[in-house]
Structure formats: structure tokens, C-alpha cells
Amino acid sequence: MIGLVHYLVFAGILFCLGLFAVLTRRNAVTVLMGIELMLNAGNVNLVAFNRFVGSGVNGQIFALFIIVLAAAEAAVALAILLNIYRTYKHITVDEIHLLRG
């Protein structure tokens, strides 16, 4: 029987994978993809908690909002990346440290 813990463990693994991708990948697009993974891990948590703990559909609606937000964020982030690419001719995040102190 699949219970709440399974969902939470799954979401934790997903979040850690996303986090690993964000911290280690050098390609900015991959970093963005890591962020998407982390966001969706959060979504899984929201839906699972609603199913097992709360009542109604608040969690699901919250998840839908986050998906929409993630789409918007991705659009903005990709636009930024496009501009970075135009300037640097690459999107390797290691090399982009103009704001170094």
C-alpha cells in the first residue's frame, strides 16, 4: 500500500536531484531544469499532504498555481539566458561572474 511517506521520500529524492543539478551543472539550461525538478518536488508534497492530511482541493490548486508560475519563470529565465548568450556567446555559468566582489 502506498502511503504518505512514499510520496515524501519520492519528493525528497526528486528535490535532491534538482538541487544536485543546480549546484553542479555548468550549463545554465540544465540549472534551470534542476530548478524545475525542485519546484515539482514541492508540488508533489503539496498534493500528497492534501490527499492524506487535509481536505478539499487547496493543495491541488496551489500546485496548479506553482506550475503556472514555473512556466512564467522559465519564460523569463530563458529570455535572460538568451541575452547572456548574445553577450558571451556561451551559457557556462562558471564563466559568468561579472559581479565578483
Binding site: L19, V22, L23, T24, V31, V93, D94, I96, H97, L98, L99, R100, G101
Partner: peptide, 18 residues
């Protein structure tokens, strides 16, 4: 001393944040 923290690399900031 503190300027060394500000590397300008987004992933470092992320790590600090974490």
C-alpha cells in the same frame, strides 16, 4: 576580507543559501 565571498558565481551563492 569579505570581498572574497562575493565570487559573482550564481552557484556559489546558491550553496551559501543552502
Amino acid at each position: 576580507a569579505f570581498r572574497r565571498v562575493e565570487t559573482g558565481r550564481i552557484q556559489h551563492y546558491f550553496a551559501f543559501f543552502l
